[in-house]
Design a binder for these strands. Structure first.
Lengths: 75, 75
DNA sequence: ACATAATGTCAAGTAATTTTTACATTTTTA
DNA sequence: TAAAAATGTAAAAATTACTTGACATTATGT
């Protein structure tokens, strides 16, 4: 059950989607810029609620932003 | 952006899926029974990682277990 | 080259999630 | 109907997510 890790494409989505900035995304989902930086950098995984909010901003299903993959698997 | 709430069908899935018990689910995903109780009862939403783990146990995509809906909307 | 915007880092604090423990109630089964 | 299993409640401690603030670096534009 372990060895898995949460991955995300927030950074890619920010550029594909409106070229939105970290600060703008942070504002839209109601967190600080630090939180976005930490998530993009994989420092920690967001709460489920925040994950849903981010997906909403980009207008895509949650699993298109976040995925749960085996540790070593490079995309 | 707000007025939304995280909903889940963990309880239903436990019965549809193998009639698994709270304790067994807790064990499988590596948390305590209390955590499962709290999530089922909507006391709080799980971390993204735990949400993924639960979905994995039931063999369904995350959005089939958890959803992000407008506060009042009864399914 | 300079100014400004965007991104990154670090650290200490607050808030939310999860654990631990202990016991009470309901459901299942022998 | 009594024992055992499953579920529920509550509260304090621990861990993790998130905030705040202050400053450093990298990119963008004029």
């Amino acid at each position: 059950m372990d060895k898995y890790k949460v991955r995300n494409n927030v950074r890619k989505l920010r550029f594909n989607h409106d070229e939105i900035t970290q600060e703008q995304l942070a504002e839209k989902v109601g967190v600080t810029r630090q939180t976005i930086i930490a998530i993009e950098g994989g420092k920690y995984a967001p709460s489920l609620e925040l994950a849903f909010k981010i997906a909403l901003v980009f207008g895509v299903p949650l699993q298109e932003v976040f995925s749960y993959e085996l540790e070593g698997d490079e995309k």
